[in-house]
Amino acid sequence: MSLLANRRGWLRAGLASAGALVLGACDKITSDPRSIAFLQSAEGLTRRAQRLVVDRKALAREFTHADISPDFRPNGSIDPTDADYVALKTKGFSDYRLVIDGLVERPLSLSLEDLRQQPSRTQITRHDCVEGWSSIGKWTGARLGPLLDQAGLKKTARYIVFHCGDTLEQTLDGSGQYYESIDLIDAYHPQTILAYAMNDSVLPVSHGAPLRLRVERQLGYKQAKYIMRIEAVEDYRHLGRGNGGFWEDRGYEWYAGI
């Protein structure tokens, strides 16, 4: 009797430890940075494959007014508490200046009124969050391409970096500041705009006031909000933790087309 119970106990313990061993081994593999680095090799393949099949000027689908989401979800920072940002917000962004510098011939400093005078575009597009949901909104903003031409990109410029006014994660080294980067293909795409209006109203704080990026054809985390400064760079490795964006520094793909 006790032998039987014992045997059953052994069996149960054996199965449990075998299970734990398998799960433990799996966890060891899945949390090993080397396996993640190996898996990430597919990202380059994805980016190149998409660049190959998607024409660089192909437009993201545009929708009608009837399609606009009544419940467009704000994500990430929705009300930044950074002192500089709060100071700007308190004065209704009247002191706001967008700086465009870095590898440009003529650095720019533009007020919101200046931005509204720029060649603009209005588009009703679908915003796809990396989490899986989508919302449709109407955006009006200055086209990024003509602005970069005004500033005059130097030949060495390869990426456009967006420095944002919000700290999404409190860190000691300041790496919690939101930023993003895109390449020149996306920077000069006709639907790439610096939006100052959403659904025919002034861009709300929760969605990135006074200025946010719309780089359609990529996921939500690329759509940087609270843009303070745009910098043309040759490489983004010296910024943040070196991966080209806040979420990229936390394991997400730099190319967010999928």
Binding site: L23, D27, T30, A42, T46, V130, G251
Partner: peptide
């Protein structure tokens, strides 16, 4: 957790697994 890779919730890593094995 026994049904997922990785066993803990991690959107970034699970996407890497998903797209690698999708290829």
């Amino acid at each position: 957790s026994w049904a997922t890779v990785p066993s803990y919730r991690d959107l970034a890593d699970s996407r890497h697994w998903h797209f690698f094995f999708a290829w």
